[in-house]
């Protein structure tokens, strides 16, 4: 891992390009991205559809390979890894949360959460123990034996988050995590991610088009046409009362006589 100041860098992207297709069908999805994300940081990637935000997430997650430039996760340059090594990176260093939850319908909550560990060849008892802890963390410790079909969308997404955490990854990648949820369960999901950052020091990179979700992050990166057009670091939050005090319009207006 590289260290910048006191904070370690979770990911570092330099001059990243991604091109799909050839000649006449050629599309440059990413046109030179430079981005550093520190450990324990919560970054939201925003942008209109087709801006390359999902592609960026896939490159960071080792699901796709950059055409040029370097993508380093935990100090490891992904370009130097073969397919099996990329698989190992996804297995041990990255947790994915998808819009459609992507739980395995025939497995129970705890089995879904334990899946990455089972894939990694960890003994079932040990895997279940860790999966149980991850379920506790998302507040579903009391329902380990329910199947996804028996749970609400919000609960399913929390199970998916528990699954993404169970291998204690360097990085949690979320792709429109509230896209299939109503606004109340969406808020709960976002607060859970925020809490993981604040209390567990988890690094989270999230793609979203929802301003309210993006506002939960520490930093917003705005993409357009494969380029970062804007970056905004959001100031730390004051107490609730301070926030309220800073909102104008609450003072009583003068009544007309």
């Amino acid at each position: 891992m590289t260290t910048t100041g006191t904070r370690t860098t979770a990911i570092a992207l330099h001059g990243v390009h991604k091109v799909f297709g050839e000649s006449s069908t050629r599309v440059e999805a990413l046109a030179g991205i430079d981005l550093d994300v520190g450990a324990g940081e919560f970054v939201a990637i925003m942008g209109p559809s087709g801006s390359g935000k999902s592609t960026l997430l896939h490159l960071i997650g080792g699901l796709d390979v950059a055409t040029s430039g370097t993508v380093a996760v935990g100090g490891e340059d992904l370009a130097s890894l073969n397919d099996d090594q990329l698989t190992m990176l996804r297995r041990r260093k990255i947790g994915f949360v998808f819009q459609a939850y992507n739980l395995v319908s025939v497995l129970t909550a705890i089995e879904n959460v334990a899946l990455p560990l089972i894939i990694d060849g960890i003994a079932e008892s040990r895997a279940n123990e860790r999966a149980g802890r991850a379920l506790d963390l998302v507040g579903l410790g009391s329902r380990p034996d329910h199947r996804p079909g028996e749970m609400s969308g919000g609960e399913q997404q929390r199970i998916a988050i528990a699954r993404s955490l169970v291998a204690e990854p360097v990085l949690l990648l979320a792709d429109e995590p509230t896209g299939n949820l109503d606004s109340v369960t969406g808020d709960q999901t976002m607060r859970l991610l925020r809490r993981l950052v604040d209390e567990e020091g988890q690094t989270v990179i999230m793609v979203t088009h929802d301003a309210r979700d993006a506002a939960m992050a520490d930093r917003i990166v705005r993409l357009r046409d494969g380029r970062i057009v804007e970056e905004q670091t959001l100031p730390p939050v004051k107490s609730g009362a301070d926030v309220l005090a800073s909102l104008e319009g609450l003072d009583a207006p003068e009544d007309a006589p």
């Binding site: 997650g61 699901l63 099996d84 698989t87 190992m88 996804r90 297995r91 459609a100 990455p116 894939i119």
Partner: peptide, 12 residues
């Protein structure tokens, strides 16, 4: 999708 998921979660 399910098989892709297994691959994404680190299945070879």
């Amino acid at each position: 999708r399910q098989l892709a998921l297994i691959r994404a979660l680190g299945g070879t």
